Simulated assay, not measured.
Amino acid sequence: MKHLFIIIFIFSYFWSSAQNIKTYTYAIKGLDTLKMDVYTPENIKEADSLPVVVWMHGGGFSGGSRAGKDETNIANFATSKNYIGISISYRLLRKGAKTGFGCKCSKKNKLFTFNQGVLDFLDATQFIYDNSDRLNVDTSKIIAAGSSAGAEIILHTVFMKRFFLSTETAYENINYAAAISFSGAILNSDDITTDNAIPTVLFHGTEDTTVPFKTAPHHNCQPNKTGFMMLDGSHTIAEKLKELETPYYFNIVKGGHHDVANVHINDLDDIFYFLDKTVKKNEVIQITKYTSPKPTNY
């Protein structure tokens, strides 16, 4: 046991010392000060311009943190692959709400929450654009990523941005090179077109009743519930990307539930291999992989 502890300590030390972390405020909205943690490889040179993974945590728009376990794991792993890793906070508009974000939350409030989340993610991206030299970021290689609520937001941002914007010119300079979604969905996959289709990583459990795997009601709400709202899940999105001959990596967790939103270290090699091939080398890869649910103590 003593030797195991030493091995884990050494591994953790070298991984944590392989990057630098700085925190920036990217927006202040009312009482919310929105920050981002920027993870940079320790050996980065001043003139370097690296691809960046911008991560949005989950939590049902009422919880979660930019410094959670999944968030730090993926940001640290990104630096080990010579990417910048960024984890952002955003407004948790359903925090303390009696209706939560399920079937008692009205469709109107759900759409408003999506809308504001998209604006927060765009504001974070705009900050990255405006400070790309200081952050050593290649703005042509920004990868939008998230889990659960965060995945819903980043998918709506990359594929349905115009649906949520009040003017055509707002954030018109912002584009994304790829997307990573753990248990996410969008309102309408028909909004994915040849103009906005990008390489996409999708993880989803086939038995997810919170965010649908295919096309189904959000939170499995019945049509008579105020929160009834149809969403297109990962399976529907992957079918659309396949039709458009756009790269995708779709990990189908057979029998998996919404906990597939959790990020596991052993999946990250495959994700970054896909990003290296599609974002850095512009290769067209379409992969569907079937896996089993991982143990809760994984």
Rank of each mutant, 00 (worst) to 15 (best):
F213S: 06
M36Q: 05
P293Q: 07
G117Q: 07
L93K: 08
L92K: 05
K69T: 12
T215F: 01
Q19K: 09
T79H: 11
I88N: 03
L268C: 06
Y290G: 06
S147A: 15
I10V: 15
E207Q: 11
E46H: 10
S16A: 15
A145P: 12
V158N: 02
K35L: 10
S292W: 02
G150W: 04
V118F: 03
A238E: 10
T125D: 06
T125H: 07
Y290A: 09
N266T: 15
L165R: 01
T72H: 09
I186W: 01
D276V: 05
T99Q: 12
P295C: 06
E152F: 05
D48Q: 06
I143W: 04
C221N: 12
F101E: 02
T99H: 02
I287S: 03
M229C: 04
T200W: 04
E207T: 08
A144M: 09
D232K: 00
K277A: 15
Q126I: 09
Y39R: 00
H57P: 10
K98V: 13
T209N: 14
S183R: 05
V284K: 14
M1Q: 13
G117D: 07
Y298E: 12
V279K: 07
T296P: 00
D120M: 08
I128Y: 13
K240W: 06
M230V: 09
I265G: 03
C105P: 00
G85V: 11
S87A: 14
L50A: 02
T72L: 13
Q222W: 08
V137N: 08
D232Y: 01
P295D: 15
I88L: 13
L4A: 14
L231D: 08
E152I: 14
R162D: 13
H235C: 04
D133V: 14
K95D: 06
D191F: 08
I153K: 02
L122W: 10
F159T: 05
K277I: 03
K81P: 08
H258G: 11
Y39P: 03
R66G: 04
N73Q: 15
H218N: 14
D48G: 06
I88C: 10
Y83V: 08
V263D: 00
T157Q: 05
I6D: 07
I28K: 14
S87V: 14
S183E: 08
I265W: 10
K289G: 02
V284I: 15
F77Y: 15
F203N: 07
E283G: 02
C105T: 09
K45T: 12
K81L: 10
A78Q: 12
G58F: 01
T72D: 14
A177M: 01
K2W: 09
F159N: 03
D276M: 05
V38I: 09
V38G: 03
F203T: 11
G227L: 04
N20Y: 14
N115L: 00
T236Y: 00
L119M: 12
K22G: 08
H258L: 13
T194H: 11
D276Q: 12
V38T: 05
P51R: 04
K281M: 05
F61K: 08
A179V: 12
T209W: 02
K281R: 13
I252E: 12
T193D: 01
T200I: 09
Q126C: 10
I8D: 06
Y13C: 15
D190E: 15
L155F: 05
F114K: 01
S62C: 06
F121I: 11
